[in-house]
């Protein structure tokens, strides 16, 4: 596994909601290496730290990757000013992604919370109707990628905190319903930490394997600076502090110490 640090042309840009942007980069060497659940470190001109953004889609034939991110501060705002034809400076692909076997015994459930929705779209595209996506957002105007998940063939359930669209409330009850119906062999989740914790507990209750993508403030992004620490318990042994950027961002839910 290797990564690259280069500048790649932006071939597509769109805005998905008020502060959320989608970019497609032409980067054949990155696309060839990239795995679902990995991320990139984008350079924001004039800022010291790069911004870690998960990869939303990988097209190995076309040699492209798609990135979806939210403008959260000055750095991501700077990146969002880049336009088609310009170059984006990225370090990619980085980290340890999701386990996505060619065939699953049962169904897969994808749980996405807000800006945690993008990194699992390729899982939906792989498992199509053998997959349910439970996606939670704050409100109707914050919903992203719902059509992409539907188009991928996944049964898509939308929840909003304020009930302005879909099911009112969090992803908790639809997730529970899906698991109760049975036949689920894998859960993939990305979103806010309280949501991930709830998903892991639910998965454990039903005895279903679960992988979660964690978020933490990062320095280098490649594993050298040990800034993005997370605590895990592996193979029944004692707790150890690992790096979200290199050992993750995807971890087996059962090993994460929240």
């Amino acid at each position: 596994m290797s990564y690259f640090c280069e500048r790649y042309p932006i071939i597509e840009k769109s805005s998905l909601s008020a502060d959320i942007y989608s970019y497609t980069l032409l980067c054949p060497n990155v696309a060839a290496e990239a795995q679902t659940g990995q991320f990139v470190q984008i350079k924001a001109e004039g800022f010291t730290l790069r911004r870690p953004i998960s990869i939303c889609e990988i097209d190995k034939q076309k040699g492209t990757i798609r990135l979806v991110f939210e403008v959260r501060g000055k750095g991501t705002d700077k990146i969002s000013r880049l336009n088609v034809g310009e170059l984006m400076d990225i370090i990619a692909p980085l980290g340890h992604g999701f386990t996505v076997p060619d065939t699953l015994d049962g169904k897969a459930i994808i749980v996405g919370g807000g800006i945690g929705t993008p990194p699992m779209l390729d899982i939906a595209k792989k498992y199509k109707d053998k997959c349910t996506a439970v996606l939670g957002f704050r409100s109707f105007d914050r919903i992203i990628l719902d059509k992409d998940y539907t188009k991928a063939g996944a049964m898509t359930i939308i929840c909003t905190d304020d009930g302005s669209y879909g099911i009112k409330g969090t992803i908790a009850s639809p997730l529970d319903e899906e698991l109760k119906a049975g036949g689920v062999s894998m859960i993939y989740a990305c979103g806010p930490t309280p949501m991930l914790k709830a998903v892991v507990l639910t998965a454990e209750r039903y005895g279903v394997k679960c992988e979660v993508s964690l978020e933490q403030r990062m320095g280098c992004g490649v594993g050298a600076c040990v800034v993005c620490a997370c605590t895990v318990r592996r193979g029944g042994s004692k707790e150890q502090v690992l790096r979200v950027c290199k050992d993750g961002p995807v971890f087996d839910g059962s090993e994460v110490v929240f």
Binding site: R217, M218, G219, V227, A229
Partner: peptide, 8 residues
């Protein structure tokens, strides 16, 4: 083990 995050 180092400090509790955030560390940066």
């Amino acid at each position: 083990d180092g400090n509790i995050p955030p560390r940066i």
